[in-house]
Design a protein around this nucleic acid. Structure first.
Length: 197
DNA sequence: TGCCAGGCCCTCTTTAGGGCCTT
């Protein structure tokens, strides 16, 4: 249980329904190392997802705020993500804001769909939910959205809903918080918890 | 199998329920 590697992740998707949404962008950050890939979703985006993320699909191409974005297949995206995680040479903890509500169920479902879940389980030891963690660390503050936490603790605004920026900001927040191990442990969940499909 | 977090805060509360937060 010594020092686990924490990889901060974020994903943008076609909507909030974890049982069926498609991944559009997946980013992961660990210290100076960065993973960031995009893929064209198979299904249309919800109106609110379009509004929030700024992504659009036109003629099978992905755009963010009107600019074209380089994409790869979802299969390649997932495979290269696993390669990135494996490069740390030990099981990693995936940290994201509300990971238990959103990122973990989506990743679990999609990994299973592409028969990559055994590999995923092999390299990922668990999930750290920074939303739950922030509420334990700072029980009396007003808002716990990532944007408000970044504003409060880092004193800055940023390109929210760009997965890479979100993941980087999350790492910065964590480094500023320097949470006790016990509070981290309480906000950490095993990969194969039964509520993931 | 069947279930879809989860713990704290607020309030039209304490014999409880809904919102937060994530796209």
């Amino acid at each position: 249980m010594g020092d686990k590697i924490i990889v901060f992740i974020d994903l943008e998707a076609t909507g909030l329904d974890t049982s069926q949404c498609d991944i559009i962008q997946l980013a992961a950050v660990c210290e100076e190392r960065v993973f960031n890939k995009y893929t064209v979703p198979q299904q249309s985006m919800t109106d609110s997802a379009k509004q929030v993320t700024g992504f659009t699909v036109q003629s099978g191409r992905l755009f963010r705020r009107g600019s074209p974005v380089e994409t790869i297949s979802i299969d390649d995206l997932l495979t290269s993500f696993l390669d990135f995680l494996r490069s740390f040479q030990r099981p990693v903890l995936l940290a994201a804001h509300s990971v238990m509500r959103f990122d973990a169920p989506v990743l679990t479902r999609v990994m299973k769909k592409y028969d990559l879940y055994p590999q995923f389980q092999q390299v990922v030891s668990g999930f750290l939910d920074t939303f739950l963690l922030s509420k334990r660390l700072f029980p009396r503050i007003k808002g716990y959205s990532q944007v408000s936490l970044v504003g409060k603790f880092l004193g800055k605004t940023y390109d929210a809903h760009n997965a890479e920026e979100d993941a980087k900001m999350l790492q910065e927040l964590y480094n500023v918080w320097r949470p006790e191990k016990s509070k981290v442990a309480i906000s950490t969940f095993k990969v194969d918890e039964k509520y993931f499909y």
